[in-house]
Structures are given as structure tokens and as C-alpha cells.
């Protein structure tokens, strides 16, 4: 069972908002990513296609089209650094370098234990508080300074340990 009953019910509860089930596709993919480790596994694609009564390729091409959907595993904390103009002008490149140094990975890579991954992203829509970092789909971290990165990473590690009860 790639999708839990609870997750299936959450997806079905969205159907009445639209004249066609297919319109729930992006929402369903968000739910799956949020609850199943930040990415959409192949068996989830089949399960969603079944629920929405569309072909698996219809799901697969949507996963590959949108930047927020991942068809491969990403870190439990997926750190997205905006590198568009306003953020670049306020030090985004330095933030990417800083994260590379702290975590030992390059953009597009994941730390060996799967705890962190880093990605350069396009404009997040927070140019007035640049530079901006987004962890997973959480509220933006704004006006991020190079000096903040170590405590940001440490805070995410603490939070993860608390979540798994270590």
C-alpha cells in the first residue's frame, strides 16, 4: 500500500472542490511528498493515477514539470537557496558556498545519511527580505546571513532528533 488510507481519504476529500478529479493532481502530489519523505516514489505515481482515474504518464509528466516535485529522494531538510537577482545581490552565492562547506554537498546532492540536501532555486518572491532560504515547504527564512547558517543547520538537526525521539 503506497498510500495510507488516511492519505487516500485526504486526497478524496478534495474531489468535491472541482468538476474533475484530475484537478486534484498537484494537491495529491503535495500531500504525498509531505507525508512520504519529500519525494514521489514510483509506486505512489501509480496509486495516485488509480485514485484520479488518469494514466500513470499523466502523473509522471506533472512530477517532472514542476520544480517543487521530486522523482528522487531529497534530504529530510531540503534547503533551497534563492539565487535570482535580488538574492544574488545580497549574498546568495555566499550562502550556497557556506552550505556546501558545512554540509559537504553540492547543490543537487544529499548528505550520506539523507539528512540534508541543497538546491539552488529561482525567485521565491521575497526580494525585499533577500537573501532567502526555504526549508522544505516551510515559511521562508528571510534576510539570511552567512553567520546564521551554522545555527540553522544545528537547529534542523535538533528538531529532527526530537521528532524521531532520540
Amino acid at each position: 500500500m503506497p498510500l495510507s488510507h488516511e492519505l487516500e481519504n485526504r486526497i478524496r476529500a478534495e474531489f468535491p472542490k472541482y468538476p474533475e478529479k484530475r484537478a486534484v493532481l498537484l494537491t495529491a502530489l503535495h500531500f504525498v511528498q509531505e507525508e512520504q519523505g519529500g519525494w514521489v516514489a514510483p509506486d505512489c505515481i501509480l496509486a495516485i493515477a488509480g485514485l484520479l482515474e488518469i494514466d500513470p504518464i499523466d502523473v509522471k509528466e506533472v512530477v517532472s514539470f514542476y520544480h517543487m516535485f521530486h522523482d528522487h529522494a531529497v534530504g529530510q531538510s531540503h534547503l533551497q537557496v534563492c539565487t535570482n537577482l535580488s538574492c544574488s545581490m545580497r549574498g546568495a552565492r555566499g550562502l550556497v558556498r557556506g552550505l556546501e562547506e558545512i554540509l559537504g554537498v553540492r547543490p543537487g546532492e544529499m548528505t550520506p545519511g539523507g539528512e540534508f540536501s541543497v538546491e539552488e532555486v529561482q525567485c521565491l518572491g521575497s526580494c525585499g527580505s533577500a537573501p532567502v532560504v526555504q526549508v522544505n515547504n516551510e515559511p521562508f527564512l528571510e534576510n539570511v546571513a552567512l553567520a546564521d547558517l551554522k545555527s540553522l543547520v544545528a537547529g534542523l538537526q535538533t528538531r529532527r532528533r526530537a521528532a524521531v525521539g532520540e
Binding site: A23, L26, T27, L29, H30, Y66, H67, M68
Partner: peptide, 10 residues
């Protein structure tokens, strides 16, 4: 009124 989330695409 329904709110519908996109997924990252200008």
C-alpha cells in the same frame, strides 16, 4: 472560494 497550490513553475 477554493485555494489551490501550484508547485513551482513561473
Amino acid at each position: 472560494i477554493h485555494v489551490h497550490r501550484g508547485a513551482g513553475a513561473y
